[in-house]
Write a protein that binds this DNA or RNA. Sequence first.
DNA 1: TTGACGTGATACCTTTTGGTATCATATCAA
DNA 2: TTGATATGATACCAAAAGGTATCACGTCAA
Lengths: 111, 111
Amino acid sequence: MSPDPHPDPIPGFRALADPTRRAILHLLTSESLTIAEVSRNFDMTRPAVKKHLAILADADLITVEPRGRERLNTLNLNGFQQVTDWLSYFDQFWDARLSDLKASLEKGSNP
Amino acid sequence: MSPDPHPDPIPGFRALADPTRRAILHLLTSESLTIAEVSRNFDMTRPAVKKHLAILADADLITVEPRGRERLNTLNLNGFQQVTDWLSYFDQFWDARLSDLKASLEKGSNP
DNA sequence: TTGACGTGATACCTTTTGGTATCATATCAA
DNA sequence: TTGATATGATACCAAAAGGTATCACGTCAA
């Protein structure tokens, strides 16, 4: 019984792949919102929004805190760390590219 | 005939959502590779890898340059820009969180 | 206690995604 | 020229993703 032999080690990327979920994260920067409140901002049903929130929570991009009969969804920056860490590996190649550009300019050739 | 009324303005996120594609990008940091060469690094068929490369190219994460009968795939940092730009918006909230933590520590409460 | 409301949880549907198999085409080398 | 090789292009398939409809449950307020 092993239905998921190779889960993505960085679930944040899949969570960020959907424009709706990115919009939700933007929404939650100004304030924490309940599921119903988030839903009012989008042209889709509440269950659909709840699914998006579940994926964001799984990726540690938000936290969900029970609040009476409501559930308050709050931006969680922890999930961003893995994503930015993976991306930061490529920073060195940016530097390399700038060096190449600089060398090209000095050499007089057209980059 | 408008089959795609709302394309994702940041295709890079969807491209990065797949672990195989992220691995391909890592591969291409050391050197440019042909489709066949990239394929040898993964346990899947060449057409499958080619699809991944097409998605990466659409997202401007790689460039493809014909080279005789081969096609040389090269890392393209331009596609990373949109992604990191979107993510950078959240930097300010990271700072805010650090401020909150600092305030909590000074106040003596447990964060 | 009784409703109304916010949410949890299914079941179901359609489209997209990730993958294979297969064949056609172009190019390089002997 | 001939054959091997690198790729293009399709057709096809199973699973996942994104969405809806629906109903049950817990909680708040009158």
